[in-house]
Write a protein that binds this DNA or RNA. Structure first.
Lengths: 109, 109
DNA sequence: CTATTTCTTCTACAATGTAGACTGATGTGC
DNA sequence: GCACATCAGTCTACATTGTAGAAGAAATAG
């Protein structure tokens, strides 16, 4: 139990959580993820990933207060753990190592 | 037939193929991949990925001449197709979109 | 108290990741 | 030629990730 290779979605979700700072809960993560990847993602897919990352202790979650809006039940917020941060950094480094020397684009549509 | 999300290994293999240019055949790909990711990969794992990418027409392969070294049988070389190049570029762009604004490291251990 | 909205959990299956055994093709040295 | 060491690629099987959609729980409005 130590082999740690993050999948594409896993990395994406972790990055989105960093981007959202506080306020990183299920629905918000899903929306920001869809926005940044220009692609729809279902809540189920996102939560599954969130759960697995939490099980691997790369994320931790805590419950917030319910907001006084209709249906505003308590949200579960997520943030990276030290291990999570480390795993993500490692993935980013590996990525750079792979891209090194290639003339890969970087412009969007 | 349109769903196109490249996995971590798939992207890595494609990048390594670009990095190797000509000379991108199984064993060489495995070695360069292991070197860049600082991690061992088995031939089986690499070939499986190579086959799947070929099936998706993101790669094409062609046989080379046998080299006159002991056991030097003919190698199967791989290169990206137009679709492959496009899929990789897309993945890279999405990645940048995700990293945008985060202060992610870039230095290795 | 039931309808509706917001958010989360559960279940199931498809796609990717990974390992290791197995097969085929060459040369080497007797 | 024959047994063997090498280099390369194929096949099989199972673990981990990706993805969807249905179901469940909490909250407010009326």
């Amino acid at each position: 139990m130590g082999r740690n290779t993050l999948g594409t979605l896993e990395q994406a979700v972790m990055m989105v959580i960093l981007a959202l700072g506080d306020g990183a809960y299920g629905v918000a993560i899903r929306d920001e993820l869809s926005r940044r990847t220009r692609r729809e993602h279902t809540l189920g897919a996102v939560y599954t990933t969130l759960d697995r990352l939490t099980a691997k202790e790369l994320l931790v979650s805590y419950l917030g207060e319910p907001t006084p809006t209709r249906g505003g039940r308590a949200k579960r917020y997520f943030k990276l753990t030290g291990d999570g941060r480390q795993a993500l950094d490692h993935a980013v480094n590996t990525r750079h190592e792979l891209e090194y020397g290639l003339g890969l684009a970087g412009k969007g549509a």
